[in-house]
Design a binder for these strands. Structure first.
Length: 349
DNA sequence: AACTGGACCAACCGCACATAT
DNA sequence: GATATGTGCGGTTGGTCCAGT
């Protein structure tokens, strides 16, 4: 990063953006990409700080944003992901094409939180309120909120495994070879939730026990790229040929986003109606499938690896039996279609 | 019509981390 | 290694809208 020459600080504009400012920013990024955000205001002729421009672009101006009310499916997914990830809004939003972390966060704070409380569920711990209030201190270490280090990559050989899992907060265990009786031994070496004995109450009230078994597809690795990464934004602006986000369909009819994740096509010939990230490394492709992504995965931060222990497999229509959801009126499961209407162009849609 | 309080949401703030110098 | 700068993220704030009084 180049340092910026110092100089007299100009009084920067704050507050709501005017349509003219939006136009300037849009036009600039459309033409040149954002490049270095700190230089964007100057180049675009805006009296804003780069940070403000970045936020405006990410939260409002990005062409791939899906505006409007959240669907029931999105709501269910947010609740589910929050139960696993906690307030990792960016990671949650990454699974909701066209939604931003800010949007998800606001939706959670303004709507879902309230709704859960009305149903007697503590939104922080996803436990019944009475229980959560009586033992919140103890629950804090048992909540389904993971630190980055605790988020586990599911891989056949565990070669990507990061640091050890702490006993208290560990919910999902790697089950293939640990032999500790804490997890289901999935044939593909993926994960299950039976190591959850310390938080059985949570599991019992929250998740479908059947779904905790390793399904036919096992539990996939999850990679959660930030939708606001520089490469994403640059490529959306058409800057980088090497990082183009154009979603192409290959000869098998699978989609392929060109951001370095050749992604899912080799794994999921039946890739429709899946949550895209669940297709990464699913056992349906076995070890070869995992290896297929090895190089790309290695380039990610560990915090980008998370493990999905929910449903023991793909989060798709019918994966969760009706009536099992603690959240009552939710649909059985989520059918996931991204902004392009394609379920596999998940990376940079 | 005027006021009030709650809900919603865009934007800001502060911090952590990555990276260049 | 120290420092400066850029970026990303989660928490918080403040403005606006709207229903109720």
């Amino acid at each position: 990063m180049a340092r910026r020459a110092g100089g007299p600080k100009k009084k920067l504009r704050r507050g709501l953006w005017s349509p003219e400012e939006d136009d300037k920013l849009m036009n600039h990024i459309a033409k040149y990409g954002h490049g270095c955000w700190s230089s964007v205001p100057k180049l675009a002729g805006l009296d804003r700080c780069g940070k403000s421009c970045r936020l405006r672009w990410i939260n409002y101006l990005r062409p791939d944003l899906k505006r409007g009310a959240f669907s029931q499916e999105e709501e269910d997914l947010i609740i589910h992901l929050h139960s696993m990830l906690g307030n990792k809004w960016s990671q949650i939003a990454a699974q909701l094409p066209g939604r931003t972390d800010n949007e998800v966060k606001n939706f959670w704070n303004s709507y879902i939180k309230k709704k859960l409380r009305q149903r007697g569920i503590d939104p922080a711990t996803h436990k019944p309120l009475a229980e959560a209030s009586s033992g919140r201190a103890a629950a804090a270490s048992r909540t389904a909120v993971f630190s980055d280090a605790e988020l586990i990559l599911s891989s056949t050989a565990g070669q990507h495994m990061p640091p050890p899992v702490t006993a208290e907060s560990y919910v999902y265990s790697r089950s293939s070879t640990d032999g500790g009786g804490s997890g289901h031994a999935c044939s593909d070496g993926s994960l299950s939730l039976s190591g959850y004995d310390q938080t059985a109450d949570f599991a019992a009230c929250y998740l479908d026990p059947d779904a905790l078994q390793c399904g036919p597809s096992g539990v996939p690795a999850v990679v959660l790229p930030s939708v606001s990464s520089s490469s994403t934004l640059n490529s959306m602006a058409g800057l980088s040929p090497a990082a183009t986000t154009t979603t192409a369909t290959d000869e098998q009819g699978n989609t392929n986003s060109g951001n370095g994740f050749e992604s899912t096509q080799s794994c999921s010939a039946t890739a429709t109606n899946h949550l895209p990230w669940l297709e990464l490394g699913t056992s349906s492709c076995g070890a070869a499938g995992v290896d297929h992504y090895g190089a790309a995965l290695d380039e990610l931060k560990w915090s980008d690896y998370v493990f999905d222990g929910y449903g023991g497999g793909q989060y798709q229509q019918g994966a969760i039996p009706a009536g099992q959801c603690i959240y009552g009126d939710s649909k059985d499961a989520v059918q996931f279609v991204d902004g392009h209407g394609l379920s596999t162009s998940w990376c940079l849609n």
